[in-house]
Nucleic acid binder design. Structure first.
Lengths: 351, 351
DNA sequence: TTGAAAGCGCTAACAC
DNA sequence: GTGTTAGCGCTTTCAA
């Protein structure tokens, strides 16, 4: 193994000079630096990461803690994060917990400052206050933290704004009997929601607010279901079976809290012969790629994954800098409404 | 920061004894070990990874190099790998190259033994011989290496066996005019394939072999396309436009080289009003989750991702052991045919 | 069975 | 600007 000492010897300088030269510090005379760089190249030298980390505390590793990498939203986030982190000369350690509260908690507690310089965390099972307590002073940036207090830096999807936009889109398309589909949707008014479980209600709450603004609350409703296509299929079945007194379908649109649910709903409606968008329009949220070739293609709120990643990484790097931001911030990412086949105009549904 | 010295002091032993106790080495007297363990727990001690790595060379990190984490096959592989590696008390570093030959090559060359103890590599752009040359003696396990020589340990999908099975399934279902869809499919006979590009032909080659065994070569064909749903859509359009002299569709089945292509083909056929499976059956390969709620659901070859991961990790760990295997091996993973709607029986297609 | 001492390769403080 | 020195926290001889 070729060490810094070897490089220094070959360049005829001391290890500390070689070290400075290789790290581009400006106390080294340019001609000396060149000589060191050349020697390093000739010897095919790379710094020993462990040694550097032991001395400097910088490991060059950041970790991402998520439920799983195998759900499209998380895949796309992980993809964006890896590319972004790499661009900033870090490496990404990925840790999954499969939505297991115990494992998530362990991952948060057992974060290792000597391994990873900072943690990006998308917590689904741990209260934000607990997170803050558990991480101590370990640099952390959260994704999807909807707690009322801003206790810690976070980057969020535009849940409220996105759902607002998509509901208005449905109404513009003549859909006035809209059913929400997603986890923990409150049947009653949004103000009944307790603070602690506010995260879950962010999207649904926004929808209900718009229903009221538009005066269509009475004709709208909600079905509570878990995230994911399989629960979505069940919802599709249930909606296909709901009729008015005169036999028409109870709903002419389903606004799903994410794309996976939406694709399931579409499948569930198809099982019962209900046509999308002819009889029922369906919308998703997240802008996963699969919505671009589903049948029908899925109208959805496309998230700015690269923007979310860039923001999160910037927030992290600022913590390492000389003038870190003193107050925790929350950044809401941008979005774009993707109008596709699943909400196309229809004669039938508007009857 | 609490160090080993602190633990040793609290337990009333020397650092070296404490070290041995914490690592469970049997030269330490059980009662002493207990005292050390308790002290460590009380102080909430965790070993400094960098220091340990610097001294012992063991970083506890393994890296996975793949094109992207954001294509279902890779998501599922990454998911399985992370869980498996974690089970073996390692952490997984993920590196993406987005199918860029240059970046892939750099990742292979710049593998860092002082960071990651070993590399799992799914190379799409680098010849296996180059890989072997570039990695030197860095512990490496490949995924999807179809080169004729077995130069290096690898874990492969059951490409030949899986396609064989799926073609026979189509024929059993009465489909005899089968079109292959995928990258680099040879229009001519399989024996024309050069050794160097054999990887690409593994699946198609197997299909063509079965066509001949079953005596249906004349009625079958192939369309060359890139992996992915978008190319699949194009293929779907083209197949919808291909008719015999008497106006019937040229093909009554499409055998796709992976699920993404298949979902695209289904979408492309739908664009033209061709019904799946009524007029044309479609099969995929890989068993990605999305095929379970597509319209129609997708018949496919389901891969044993957990098995692949476990095998790959075992191969890696054996390299670190006292008696490593001396010859490189290639392991073909198991599979299961998932019979779903996209290949259901049909009156029309068999006419 | 335990402890003392050396040193992994690097960076940071300080002297020159 | 450059070199010398010390030491990050751990593991690993080797001696006791």
């Amino acid at each position: 193994m070729v060490t810094l000492k070897d490089v220094a010897a070959k360049a005829g300088v001391s290890p500390s000079t070689a070290s400075g030269a290789l790290r581009g510090l400006d106390f080294v005379r340019p001609t000396t630096a060149d000589r060191v760089l050349k020697a390093a190249q000739d010897l095919n030298y790379t710094a020993n990461v462990s040694a550097r980390a032991l001395r400097s505390g910088r490991t060059g590793i950041l970790s991402l803690v998520i439920p799983t990498v195998d759900i499209p939203f998380y895949s796309q986030l992980t993809n964006a994060m890896e590319r972004c982190v790499e661009r900033h000369n870090y490496q990404l350690l990925v840790q999954q917990n499969d939505f297991d509260p115990k494992r998530e908690r362990e991952q948060i507690m057992q974060r290792d400052d000597t391994l990873s310089e900072g943690m990006f965390l998308l917590s689904t099972k741990t209260d934000t206050r607990d997170v803050v307590r558990l991480i101590g002073d370990h640099p952390t940036v959260l994704f999807e933290d909807y707690s009322t207090d801003i206790l810690i830096d976070s980057v969020n999807a535009p849940s409220a704004g996105g759902i607002d936009r998509v509901i208005r889109h449905l109404v513009e398309r003549g859909r006035n009997r809209i059913c929400l589909a997603g986890e923990s949707i409150p049947i009653t008014h949004v103000t009944n929601i307790s603070n602690s479980s506010r995260a879950r209600y962010e999207r649904a709450g926004s929808a209900i607010r718009v229903f009221e603004e538009l005066g269509i609350s009475a004709s709208c409703g909600a079905i509570n279901c878990d995230w994911g296509p399989e629960p979505g299929i069940e919802v599709g079945h249930r909606i296909a079976d709901m009729h008015d007194a005169n036999g028409t379908l109870r709903y002419n649109a389903v606004c799903c809290m994410n794309d996976d649910i939406a694709l399931g709903v579409i499948r569930g409606l198809a099982d019962r012969g209900v046509r999308v968008p002819d009889e029922v329009a369906v919308t998703g949220f997240d802008g996963i790629k699969q919505g671009a070739w589903s049948i029908p293609t899925l109208t959805t709120v496309e998230l700015d994954y690269d923007g979310m990643a860039e923001t999160a990484v910037s927030m992290m790097l600022r913590k390492f800098s000389n003038n870190p931001v003193s107050f925790p911030q929350r950044v809401i990412a941008g979005f774009r409404l993707l109008e596709r086949e699943s909400t196309a105009a229809s004669q039938v549904a508007n009857a």
